[in-house]
Amino acid sequence: MTKRLLRLVPLAVLLLVAAVTSAWASHAPDRLVLEDAFCPPSLARPLGCGEAGVDLTSLLGHAVLRGALLAVTVALVGFAIGTPLGAASAMARGRLERAVERACDLVQAFPTFLLAFAVLSAVRAPGRMHLGFVFALTAWAPFARLALAQTRVLRDAAFVEAAYALGLGRTAVLFRHVVPNLLGVVAVQLGGTAAAVVVSEAALSFLGFGPRDGVSLGSVMDQGVASMLRAPHVLVAGSLSVFFTSAAMLVAGRAAARE
């Protein structure tokens, strides 16, 4: 049990550090000090500065917090939609079950960024909400697939039969007896989905589809790539932030895993 809770530590530490650095009001990410542009790391500015003298410590702190919030929200939405959908379709069996399974196949294999291009072409300047919406369009699929597979095992179990025999309706059996029993398996996917959203958000804002204020891991990467020759510290700080945020999410997801 404690070992499983320990897996939440990296994420907690990351969020704490991000919260502390972003609370550093004197170096807010919208405060530009032009003469400090691309200054290397120093005591006053632990990660140095980026484009136009923005403080990287504070910018990355904000970017990690907002990216993590988006990722957790999308993962929870996917979880809330996918789990009942998968479980219900497996309980219904037959056509519906096969249709949901095939839909999961298609959605999971399909490139998310193409869907993003298609949907985001309607807005001039996509914000984090738009990105979250696009990710939520596909986030339910892995949850539904896991719930479906797990329900196939559970639906013939004696306690489900007993629940029917006691006169419970389909919905009651589904939510009171089946769903609680598959939560453990499905919850592990929360970490995987959250990590994928962190990376996708960074990738889309790296491509220029991010929030306009530039407070995003991908925008930092973009600055870093553009200034690779004169200020490599921007690139290194951005890359490490993307890596640690996504890894912390993956590890935290394993906290739900049964050993």
Partner: peptide, 12 residues
């Protein structure tokens, strides 16, 4: 577990 975006620019 390492995203492409995290390592490709640094390796480059």
């Amino acid at each position: 577990a390492t995203p492409l975006l995290a390592f490709a620019p640094v390796v480059t």
